[in-house]
Simulated assay, not measured.
Amino acid sequence: MTSPLPGLRTEGLSRVYPSGEGTVTALRPFTHTFQPGMTAVVGPSGSGKSTLLNLLAGFDTPSGGRVVVGDTDLHALTEAGRADFRLAHYGFVFQNHNLVAILSAQENVEFPLMLAGVPPRERRDRARALLAQVGLERRAGHMPSQLSGGEAQRVALARALAGDPQVLLADEPTGNLDTRTGNEVLELLLAPARAGRTVVLITHDPEVAARADHTLRVRDGEVHAEPAPAGMR
């Protein structure tokens, strides 16, 4: 497990893309400290939400500013260094679960632990415990094609939590699920938030956003913090 890190923040973070003879500003300079708990990122399609998430993850390179996790400037690292840092400190949940098709549910959860060099017995035990935590201990040997959408998303969440990440990034994790299953996945995402982890969640669903502790609204590349509705969580 990783040692606690003092949060995630951006300092003047921006992203500009070339477009024909000009440029497109996908994210305007943005300075923000993400507090422990869940932050919902909301806004219309094309507003800059995914650009922000990709920059926070280190998948994309900023045009200006930086992303800092603890005392580490994410974009001062090499590409390999960022990959190692993500493995140690980040977890990811996507709208499409992105499970490895040729691995069982348990093997998918074990996969990041294997990459991190965790001994086989320890990673098996942790994977089993996480699958039990998401209610899928009896589906451990099933392949992704044998799982429902909700089950696959819960396996993806277990995989994201395998390394005990300090930062959990989720991109529309309930977007392809029915209301009941989406609520179950959201409750599982809220657990690390309540435990003091930093969870950043992109969502189009106002009911999902209302469950978050903090809200960021993105429009035309501008990011503004706003109070989350009280009493919904």
Score class of each variant (00 low, 15 high):
73 D>N: 13
11 E>F: 01
54 N>D: 13
63 S>E: 15
130 L>W: 02
58 G>L: 07
27 L>W: 05
120 P>L: 10
59 F>A: 14
33 T>L: 07
1 M>C: 15
116 A>H: 12
106 Q>I: 12
23 T>H: 13
65 G>M: 12
51 T>C: 08
36 P>R: 00
74 L>D: 09
136 L>H: 02
143 M>A: 13
1 M>A: 15
21 E>Q: 13
119 P>L: 06
142 H>T: 11
142 H>D: 06
60 D>S: 14
80 A>K: 02
27 L>H: 03
132 A>C: 02
27 L>F: 05
100 V>N: 01
92 F>P: 00
142 H>V: 10
66 R>F: 11
60 D>K: 07
30 F>I: 12
131 L>P: 00
32 H>N: 01
88 A>N: 14
56 L>M: 05
131 L>Y: 05
123 R>P: 03
60 D>Q: 13
43 G>W: 00
51 T>L: 07
103 L>Q: 06
102 I>C: 13
13 L>N: 06
75 H>S: 06
50 S>K: 14
38 M>S: 03
129 A>T: 12
114 M>Y: 12
50 S>F: 11
58 G>R: 03
97 H>I: 13
2 T>E: 14
42 V>K: 08
7 G>V: 05
84 D>V: 01
84 D>T: 02
18 P>R: 15
113 L>Y: 10
8 L>P: 01
117 G>T: 11
115 L>D: 06
142 H>Q: 11
122 E>G: 04
56 L>Q: 05
133 Q>H: 08
14 S>W: 11
140 A>R: 05
111 F>A: 06
92 F>K: 04
118 V>I: 14
104 S>H: 07
3 S>E: 01
39 T>N: 01
106 Q>N: 01
20 G>F: 05
112 P>F: 10
100 V>D: 00
83 A>V: 03
4 P>Y: 00
93 V>I: 15
67 V>K: 11
32 H>Y: 12
4 P>V: 00
118 V>P: 02
140 A>F: 07
6 P>D: 08
137 E>A: 15
114 M>Q: 06
107 E>M: 02
97 H>Y: 14
21 E>N: 14
120 P>Q: 09
28 R>P: 02
17 Y>C: 03
9 R>T: 00
27 L>T: 07
39 T>V: 02
89 H>D: 11
122 E>N: 10
102 I>D: 15
87 L>C: 04
16 V>M: 04
74 L>H: 08
73 D>R: 12
141 G>W: 12
81 G>T: 04
90 Y>T: 04
37 G>H: 05
67 V>H: 11
